[in-house]
Amino acid sequence: MGVLRELTTSIPRGEICGILGANGAGKTTAMRLVMGLIKPKKGSITVLGDTLRRNNHDRIGYMPQLNALYQELSIEENVHFFARMYGMSGRQERNVAVDKAISLVELNDRRRNSVANLSGGMRQRVSLAVALVHSPELLVLDEPTVGLDPVLRRSFWDHFSSLSDNGITLFISSHTMDDANHCDRLIFLQEGHIVADGSPEELRAAAGAERATLEDAFLHFVLKVIP
C-alpha cells in the first residue's frame, strides 16, 4: 500500500485495457484494489456499477500473478472447485462450464493430470480457465502472459480478443510491449502515477517521433517523470 497515488481512470465495458509499468510501478496494487483485496486510503472504486466488491464477486474473474492452484488436484478438480465457489452448485450446469473453460485453454487431453505435474505455461492456462469458468463480465488478469512461449502468448491474446468481442471487459497488467500492442487502451504507470492514458495509436502519436513504437512511447512518458 502507499504505492499508488492519484490514480483516476475509468474503463468502458467490453474494452481491453492494459496497465503497463516497470517492476514496482504499482500494477499489482492497482489490480488488487480493483478486486477489493486491499482498500484505498482515499477515494473510491466502482466496479460494474457497484462500490462494494462483495455485491459483484461472481461477475468478476481474477487471475493472480501466482498460479494460485491446488497442486495435488487435477486440472478439472481445480476448475470444478472454483466453479462451486462461484455458486455453480448444479452439477449439469457446472460440467458444461468446466468443459468449456478447459477446452478454451486447450487442456482437454490433460484434464485429469495433477497441476503439480504440469509445465509453467500449462499452469497459466489452468489459472485462466479458473478465472473464466463462471462466465464473468470483467476479467482482471495480473501479468497473464509472463513466462509463456510466443505461440501460447498468441493463443492467449486470441482468447482475450474473442472475449472482448463478446462484451467482456479485460483489465490486464503487463510489462511487455508485445502485450500492449493487443490492447484497446493503455495506462502507463510510473512510480504509482499515471503518466499516460490512451489508445496505442494516441500514445504513439504523442511520443512525437515518426513511426514511433509503443516502446518509444512508453520510454517517452516514463523518462519525462524520471529526473
Binding site: 481474477y62 498460479n67 494460485a68
Partner: peptide, 13 residues
C-alpha cells in the same frame, strides 16, 4: 502462500 486463499477471497465464499 500459494495464493489460493486470495483467490477464494474474491469469490462469494
Amino acid at each position: 502462500s500459494q495464493g489460493t486463499l486470495e483467490r477464494l477471497n474474491i469469490t462469494p465464499v
